[in-house]
C-alpha cells in the first residue's frame, strides 16, 4: 500500500517535472540563421568563468544552441576531450605530450587558442613589513623540493629579513596553476616542496594568507583584486632587464605587455577538429574570440590586445580551411 503510493508520488513528480522544462524562445535577435544543437565544454575551473560568460552571451545570439560548461579540471577535461566526449576543452596550461598522444590515438585533431591572460600574484600578509619585493631566485629557494624541511625561515631567503618561520600557501598539485607556477619558479613543472598549505580553492588561500603574518602565497590575479584590503601584493623581479627593469607588480598593464614575468600565463581553449565542422561549434568559437576581450575583465582576468585576438582568429580560420574534414 504505502510503497505503491510512494512510487505513484515519485512518478507524478517525474512527469510534472518533465513537463515544466518546455523550451522557451524569448530572445529575438534577428541575426543570420538560427542554429540548433549543442556545444560541450569541459576542463579547467580557472578558465570556467570566461567560458561561462561567453556561453551566457552566446545565448542572446543563438538561444537554441545548448552550450554547457563543466569543471573537471584541465587534466580531467583533456581525458574527455581526447575521447571525443567534449567539443572544447578549457585549459590553464598547454596540453601535455601524453594527452596529445591519446588524442592522436583516438584520431582527434585539435587547435590551441589563447583567450586571456592571468597574472599569478605573489602575496603576503599586510602586517608583513619586510618583504617589499622578491626575486624569482628567492621564490625558487622557498618553493623548490630541496627546500623541504631545510629552508624554513625568512632570514634564509634574504639577509635582513627576520629570523622567523615562513608559511607557504599555494594551489593544489592537481591544478594547472600549480604546474605553471612550479615550471616558472622551480624550473620544472609539477615539482615543489610538499610542506605547504595546498588548496584547490583560492578563497581558502586568501583566508590563509590574510590570517597569518608569516604567510606567503600565490594565486590568480582576480583573487588579489577582490581581496586587496586583506593582502599585500609583492612585486616580482625576474632579474632580466629586457622585459622591464626591477621588481614589477602584476596589473592589467604589466600582464598585458608581458613585463610581469615569468608569472603571467595564458589561458587556453582547445577545439576539436571534428566538432568545429558543426556550424554551431564553429559559430561559438568565432563568437568566443570576438567577445573574450570584453568579457574577461568582467570575470577577473586580463584580456589580450586586439591584435592578439585577431591573430588567434586568423589561426583558427587557417585551421578551419586546412584541417582534415571527416
Amino acid at each position: 500500500m504505502k510503497i505503491k503510493s510512494l512510487i505513484a508520488i515519485l512518478a507524478i513528480g517525474t512527469t510534472l517535472f518533465a513537463s515544466c522544462g518546455a523550451p522557451k524562445s524569448d530572445e529575438n535577435t534577428g541575426t543570420s540563421d538560427k542554429l540548433k544543437g549543442e556545444v560541450k565544454i569541459d576542463g579547467s575551473s580557472t578558465v570556467y568563468p570566461i567560458s561561462e560568460a561567453v556561453a551566457e552571451e552566446f545565448r542572446t545570439v543563438q538561444p537554441d544552441v545548448k552550450v554547457t560548461v563543466g569543471l573537471s579540471g584541465t587534466g580531467g577535461g583533456f581525458k574527455k576531450f581526447s575521447r571525443g566526449e567534449t567539443d572544447i576543452n578549457n585549459a590553464s596550461r598547454h596540453i601535455k605530450e601524453a594527452e596529445g598522444k591519446s588524442c592522436e590515438e583516438n584520431n582527434i585533431h585539435y587547435l590551441e587558442l589563447e583567450v586571456a591572460y592571468d597574472g599569478l600574484s605573489v602575496v603576503v600578509n599586510p602586517a608583513n613589513d619586510w618583504v617589499k619585493d622578491i626575486t624569482v631566485a628567492e621564490l625558487k629557494k622557498m618553493w623548490e623540493p630541496e627546500a623541504q624541511g631545510k629552508i624554513t625561515k625568512w632570514s634564509q631567503i634574504r639577509a635582513g629579513w627576520p629570523d622567523t618561520e615562513f608559511h607557504l600557501y599555494g594551489a593544489g598539485t592537481e591544478s594547472g596553476t600549480y604546474d605553471y607556477f612550479t615550471e616558472a619558479v622551480v624550473g620544472e613543472s609539477h615539482k615543489s616542496r610538499g610542506d605547504y598549505t595546498a588548496s584547490e580553492d583560492d578563497n581558502i588561500l586568501v583566508q590563509g594568507v590574510a590570517g597569518d603574518k608569516n604567510a606567503l602565497g600565490f594565486f590568480g590575479f582576480a583573487y588579489y583584486e577582490e581581496n586587496k584590503e586583506k593582502l599585500k601584493l609583492v612585486p616580482v623581479n625576474d632579474e632580466d632587464e629586457t622585459n622591464g627593469a626591477g621588481a614589477i607588480l602584476p596589473s592589467v598593464e604589466t600582464v598585458k605587455n608581458k613585463t610581469y614575468s615569468p608569472l603571467s600565463r595564458g589561458l587556453y581553449v582547445y577545439v576539436n577538429s571534428v566538432a568545429v565542422d558543426r556550424p554551431e561549434v564553429n559559430e561559438f568559437v568565432k563568437f568566443y574570440l570576438d567577445n573574450a576581450g570584453a568579457l574577461t575583465r568582467e570575470v577577473g582576468f586580463i584580456p589580450m590586445s586586439d591584435e592578439e585576438y585577431a591573430a588567434q582568429k586568423k589561426k583558427y580560420e587557417e585551421f578551419m580551411s586546412t584541417h582534415v574534414k571527416k
Binding site: C20, A22, P23, Y48, S51, A55, E56, K66, V67, G70
Partner: peptide
C-alpha cells in the same frame, strides 16, 4: 557527479533522464 560528468553551466532545464545536468552542490 563531477566525475561522472555533471556540468556546472547548464542554461536549460533537463527534459528527460538522458539529458545533461548540473546539481545544487556543484
Amino acid at each position: 557527479l563531477i566525475v561522472v560528468g555533471a556540468l556546472a553551466y547548464v542554461p536549460f532545464v533537463p527534459t528527460s533522464p538522458t539529458s545533461e545536468f548540473t546539481v545544487l552542490p556543484i
